[in-house]
Design a protein around this nucleic acid. Structure first.
Length: 452
RNA sequence: GUGAAUGUAGCUCAGUUGGUUAGAGCAUCAGAUUGUGGUUCUGAGGGUCGUGGGUUCGAGCCCCAUCUUUCACCCCA
């Protein structure tokens, strides 16, 4: 039997986990600094909770779990009365936002609103794996639900900046507003085609104006509407310039004006909190996650000379009525989601992990095992070290010194303690620093003091 | 779901127009060295060449299928 793992999934070595945990811990610390509280939800949800929430594409990418029991035999017995639910009624979660909405509705009476929650768990998508795209990956979400205030958007943007600054990754935070996109569709007289329109203009950077126009035409957008849109594609200048342009372009759309107003408010909040304005950029072609966003839309791309990574490392936005489908209407929420697997890939590419020399081993000291008699003595020392809060381990076999030293070396354990006859008699133990090679004779108290 | 590339030891890769018993470096293990690792020297183990079929006297090499990984599209963290 040849061992294998499913397509798009990965094992993580101890070295990789140290690095992944560093990223996770950085995000967690920032989330908690801003008052977010952690929850977890099950890896699987009932399919009825997931289906239809992510659009047609999303439904195809759901992992469905085969029902337990003799499913095949039971289905055969049913002949033509087979229902989909006879085969599968559970699926793996596709993101953390929909399960969160479900959580909020189920626990509405225990939750104090506005609820600031964070969640860091794996999600699964049956996508074709490629660079930066996995079938099992972690999302790290923070959402505020039960508040319309744009202060929430402001704080989320600050969180984004804090995290990437701590990780030492240069990024560009792109913002947009669904209301601006709605306004555009309205102004050009194609309000019902908003999805097709935004999907097409989202590709502007990638495929160029001509191809975008071609795609719009293919989707049945009128020539007149396409002509009206052209000025949008050539907007240049600062965020203020763009907003001024939109003031004019969307002057006949109440929704559009509301969107501009929201963007201005967010920017002014950020300004008064002395946020570095060159990090953030209004991008009217940004149209992600359109299925449920209703206000702000966020996306972060790496913008760092040391990285070639082009996919987004964070997405987010506001959804006014996500819980409505679960029976709790009019609850507004806004959230963001870090993709730590991509962040890991970026940091690896930028050699950031090497520069920050993370502790590769949590063990601080290895006690060398010389034999039965010495082992007894070492055990009491080990006990004292651990009681004093020093991460310690003893080599379990009385193997050759070379082997034990090599073990410490390979595991990057910084100190080794030698306890032989001499040490037992004098009570002065030999401490070796594996980095410098230098050795000292210390009693247990001195040892604990030194390692603390 | 569409299109393309890839796969030889744990890892990175050689392998001639199809021709005997498939090689190297690194890693691993053992020894040189019975209380000293990271450098050195010596030796050893490890491959049904991704898998299954086919062509051939003969296949790591050619053909077909399938899986993995990678890249692009779609979509997305």
């Amino acid at each position: 039997m040849k061992p294998s793992i499913p397509k798009g999934t990965r094992d993580f070595s101890p070295e990789e986990m140290v690095r992944r945990n560093f990223i996770l811990q950085t995000i967690r610390t920032v989330y908690e600094r801003y008052g977010f509280r952690q929850i977890e939800t099950p890896a699987m949800e009932n399919l009825s909770m997931l289906e239809g929430k992510y659009g047609e594409e999303g439904d195809k990418l759901l992992f469905r779990i085969l029902n337990s029991g003799e499913v095949i035999d039971e289905i055969k017995a049913k002949k033509d009365n087979i229902r989909l639910s006879d085969i599968s009624e559970k699926g793996l979660r596709y993101d953390l936002t929909v399960p969160f909405a479900r959580y909020v509705v189920m626990h509405r009476n225990e939750i104090t609103f506005p609820f600031r929650r964070y969640q860091m768990q794996p999600v699964w998508r049956a996508d074709r794996p490629q660079k930066g795209r996995y079938r099992e990956f972690y999302q790290c979400d923070a959402d505020v639900i039960g508040s319309d205030s744009l202060l929430n958007e402001t704080e989320l943007v600050q969180i984004i900046a804090d995290v990437f600054s701590k990780l030492n990754i240069g990024v560009s935070i792109k913002i947009n507003n669904r209301k601006i996109l709605s306004g555009i569709a309205e102004i050009i007289g194609e309000a019902d085609k908003i999805i097709d329109i935004t999907v097409a203009i989202d590709k502007l950077d990638k495929i160029g104006i001509d191809k975008v126009n071609e795609e719009l035409k293919g989707k049945g957008v009128s020539d007149d509407a396409i002509t009206k849109m052209q000025p949008l594609f050539s907007v240049k200048g600062t965020t203020d310039d763009r907003l001024n342009f939109l003031d004019n372009f969307l002057s006949a759309s109440e929704t559009g004006k509301k969107g501009i107003e929201e963007v201005r408010t967010l920017l002014s909040y950020l300004h008064s909190m002395s946020f570095k304005s060159d990090l953030i950029e209004l991008d009217i072609t940004l149209a992600r996650g359109l299925n449920y966003y209703t206000g702000a839309i966020f996306e972060v791309k790496v913008s760092d000379a040391r990285s070639t990574f082009t996919s987004s490392v964070l997405g987010g936005g506001r959804y006014d009525d996500l819980t409505g489908i679960f029976g709790l209407p009019d609850v507004s929420g806004v959230g963001i989601s870090f993709g730590i697997d991509r962040i890991y890939d970026v940091m690896l590419e930028m050699n950031l992990f090497e520069q920050m020399h993370l502790n590769e081993s949590s063990t601080k000291i290895l006690l060398v095992n010389f034999g039965k008699k010495e082992e007894q003595y070492a055990l009491t020392v080990l006990q004292k070290l651990r009681a004093a809060g020093v991460n310690s381990e003893i080599y379990p076999d009385a193997a050759k010194m070379k082997k034990q030293m090599s073990y410490a070396d390979a595991c990057k354990i910084p100190y080794v303690l030698l306890i032989g006859d001499e040490e037992m008699q004098s009570g002065k133990l030999t401490l070796k620093n594996m980095m410098s090679g230098e050795q000292n004779r210390l009693d247990v108290e001195e040892l604990i003091k030194k390692l603390h």
